[in-house]
Design a protein around this nucleic acid. Structure first.
Length: 224
DNA sequence: TAGGCCATCTGGTCCT
DNA sequence: AGGACCAGATGGCCTA
């Protein structure tokens, strides 16, 4: 949360009520390092990890084992168990072996797909500024998406403000002195807004946006 | 104990 | 035909 506040945008907090800080707990201390669900980035129970997930996680991208589909191991996800009888007796009635093999293959693909999705979400979490800490619970999926959206919006807003600042400082001037690359982020021909001479009111103008002398002002830069 | 979050299975649909 | 994507259902784990 501190990181969010330091960025000075309330947009980060503009999540849906249910997904606010209390929901994904920026500061909420839960169990283990990765949260109570420990081993897998996305959660899941211990028995779950011992079963399908643990295996599939380490062999990510290469699902093949029938045991990983929960038919034998009793992986959680009740649907499988609940419908097992139905599968064996119903839809898989004709050629049980082939049908079952096909179903297992489909299950494995789907599992792999979801793992990829979770990996992508982890990647997204890693670039979102929030309290990454062993003692802080990981963002939920929905919170990750909402926070990412707000972060993007905030970045766009910051960019726009920066553009306005540059335009303001450059208004009415057309000097050829190039700005340092770091001060010319938008690729436009750089100019100092107030020229080489000391301009009355320079500090006020230059601090209008930032509250401090602007690096974009040659006059300010020339001052010792 | 209720609610939140999650992984998995499953069948349907669409695309290549 | 096979794969990708999606949504519903289910049950486990965890926190308040």
């Amino acid at each position: 949360m501190a990181e969010l506040k330091s960025l000075g945008s309330e947009a980060y907090l503009a999540l849906s009520p249910g997904y606010g800080p209390s929901a994904f707990a920026y500061g909420a201390v839960r169990g283990g390092a990765e949260g109570p669900r420990g081993s897998y980035a996305g959660g899941g129970g211990a028995d779950f990890h011992a079963g399908a997930m643990g295996k599939s996680a380490e062999s990510s991208g290469e699902q093949s084992g029938d045991e990983e589909d929960g038919f034998e191991t009793g992986v959680k996800g009740g649907a499988g168990f609940e419908r097992e009888g139905k599968l064996k007796g119903g839809a898989l009635g004709k050629k049980p072996k082939e049908q079952r093999s096909l179903r297992l293959s489909i299950n494995a693909r789907e599992r792999r797909r979801m793992h990829d999705l979770n990996d992508a979400l982890d990647g997204l979490r890693s670039v979102i500024p929030y309290a990454h800490s062993p003692s802080v619970r990981k963002l939920s999926k929905i919170a990750t998406l909402l926070l990412a959206k707000n972060y993007i919006l905030m970045q766009a807003q910051a960019l726009e403000e920066m553009r306005r600042l540059v335009a303001y400082l450059n208004q009415g001037q057309a000097l050829s002195a190039p700005l340092p690359a770091t001060l010319n982020p938008f690729g436009q021909s750089p100019v100092y807004p107030f020229g080489g001479a000391a301009v009355p009111g320079c500090p006020e103008k230059c601090t209008a946006f930032t509250g401090a002398a602007s690096a974009l002002c040659k006059h300010c830069n020339d001052k010792p």
